[in-house]
């Protein structure tokens, strides 16, 4: 049995998410599907960041009393990406909320969710 490296698998998955998302944003006409594609891109970026901080067999990066500092430094996972991803998820969620709200408004205005109809060549 081939045991794949978890980190490598996550990185591949992140790349796949970004590419699927880009594909959706560009080629799919429906606005809601475009927005789902955007969520894919964001999640791909987040997964990429979180995979960077992965350490096989690492411990949670919280320094508890009684821990040996050198052992902790050598064995804890890298905490920075986790903090970043938390922030990035919040940003992604707020962007998504604004986009979905706009999609609602535009659906009421145009009666359609087709990007070509709503945001096509108007001039």
């Amino acid at each position: 049995m081939v045991v794949m490296d978890v980190q490598l698998a996550s990185l591949f998955c992140a790349g796949a998410l970004v590419i699927i998302g880009l594909f959706a944003v560009i080629f799919i006409d429906n606005i809601i599907k475009k927005i789902i594609g955007i969520a894919f891109i964001e999640e791909g970026a987040n997964l990429f960041l979180i995979a960077l901080g992965y350490k096989a067999g690492g411990v949670v990066p919280i320094f508890m009393p009684g821990m040996n500092a050198s052992w902790f430094a050598a064995n804890s996972a890298y905490p920075l990406p986790q903090a970043l991803v938390l922030t990035s998820i919040v940003i992604g969620a707020s962007t998504l909320a604004v986009m979905l709200a706009l999609a609602m408004v535009l659906y009421r205005k145009h009666g359609s969710l087709s990007a070509r109809e709503i945001m096509g060549d108007e001039e």
Partner: peptide, 8 residues
């Protein structure tokens, strides 16, 4: 919405 999509 265009700006947000392109920004994304």
């Amino acid at each position: 919405l265009k700006y947000l999509i392109i920004g994304s």
